[in-house]
């Protein structure tokens, strides 16, 4: 595919005047397409074409084997009326809190407090460590965390006392339990894994962002007698607009398309309490062989991601232009 897609080997004339260069540049602007083609071909064949097919399948009733039957929009109707499918979408909304909002907020707080600490030698090591979840397969994180959150797991062992106190306060039952098997706590449990995956990334990103803020801004505000809290809201937060936008975007995509963690840790249970669109698509399409319905859910998911991302991007870009 990469061989001689670019065939501009013919020698150029000696006339390298400025005007000659201009024509050359213009020729390049056309010839450049040959450089673009392999990437476009790979992208078109294995992303755009399947995406178009997803849309197509979503209008059919198809078991993947027998001839498909056109059903119009009825698959989409089912996505929004079938309780299990709809609740899967709701669950991913809750996961956004854990995958996106919590890591971003916690990351901001941690970055603000640890800014000086992370600059030192400890910080170099810490940065490598807290970025580790970005390198580890989510499947492995799922295995490790289902073990951690089990009845005999380390979470119960280490955090028994504080959890017990909080739960008693809220009247929410026994402190020692298998978290991923509980109706109330399975989804937050999956969310907790998401916090673990995303927190380091957001913290480091926001710390780096804070390092870029012009120190004179702080000096000026200190002269005005502003305290650290006002500084944070007046200077730090607005300056980090772009980093916060990135944190939210990356983590929201991860929340909405969650699959690996759920597949490994709960398989959607108990009683569908942790069912998410990604897993539902997989099970519908490949286990239940309802390809059309699965595709409709897939398209809804794609649109959902765009709907969540666009406002954030708009917010970030507006800040850049002003």
């Amino acid at each position: 595919m990469l061989n001689s897609a670019t065939t501009s080997r013919r020698p150029l004339g000696a006339g390298s005047t400025l005007g000659g260069l201009r024509t050359l540049v213009r020729a390049d602007r056309a010839r450049g397409w040959l450089f673009l083609l392999p990437a476009l071909a790979a992208y078109g064949m294995f992303v755009l074409w399947p995406l178009a097919n997803s849309v197509k399948y979503s209008f059919y009733n198809w078991d993947g084997i027998n001839p498909a039957k056109w059903v119009g929009l009825s698959n989409y109707g089912q996505v929004f009326t079938n309780a299990t499918l709809y609740s899967a979408i709701e669950h991913s909304g809750i996961l956004i809190i854990f995958f996106s909002f919590l890591p971003t907020a916690l990351g901001l707080a941690l970055a603000a407090f640890m800014r000086s600490a992370i600059a030192g030698r400890l910080g170099t090591v810490a940065r490598v460590v807290i970025f580790l979840p970005q390198v580890v397969a989510l499947v492995a994180a799922g295995i490790a965390w289902s073990w951690l959150l089990g009845y005999n797991g380390a979470i119960n062992q280490i955090f028994y006392a504080p959890i017990d106190a909080v739960l008693k306060l809220l009247g929410l039952g026994a402190a020692k339990q298998a978290w991923l098997g509980s109706f109330q706590f399975a989804l937050p449990g999956v969310g907790l894994i998401g916090v673990w995956v995303m927190l380091g990334f957001c913290t480091v990103l926001l710390t780096v962002g804070m390092g870029k803020i012009d120190p004179s801004l702080y000096e000026a505000s200190q002269l005005d007698g502003a305290g650290p809290v006002r500084e944070f809201f007046d200077i730090t937060l607005p300056s980090l607009r772009q980093e916060i936008g990135v944190c939210l975007t990356v983590t929201m995509i991860a929340a909405l398309s969650a699959f690996d963690i759920v597949y490994i840790s709960t398989q959607g249970g108990p009683a569908n309490q942790t069912m998410v669109p990604g897993l539902e698509i997989y099970l519908l399409a490949f286990t239940n062989r309802e390809v059309g319905l699965a595709s409709a859910l897939a398209i809804v998911l794609v649109v959902l991601v765009v709907v969540c991302i666009v406002p954030i991007q708009w917010y970030v870009n507006r800040g850049n232009e002003s």
């Binding site: 078991d63 993947g64 084997i65 027998n66 001839p67 059903v71 959607g268 099970l283």
Partner: peptide
């Protein structure tokens, strides 16, 4: 070959919920 399949048989479309939770 799958996809365009040689077998022709109408199937009642059903919605299944829940799914193979293993």
């Amino acid at each position: 070959q799958r996809g365009a399949s040689p077998v022709t048989r109408q199937q009642p479309g059903r919605v299944r919920r829940g799914l193979g939770r293993a």
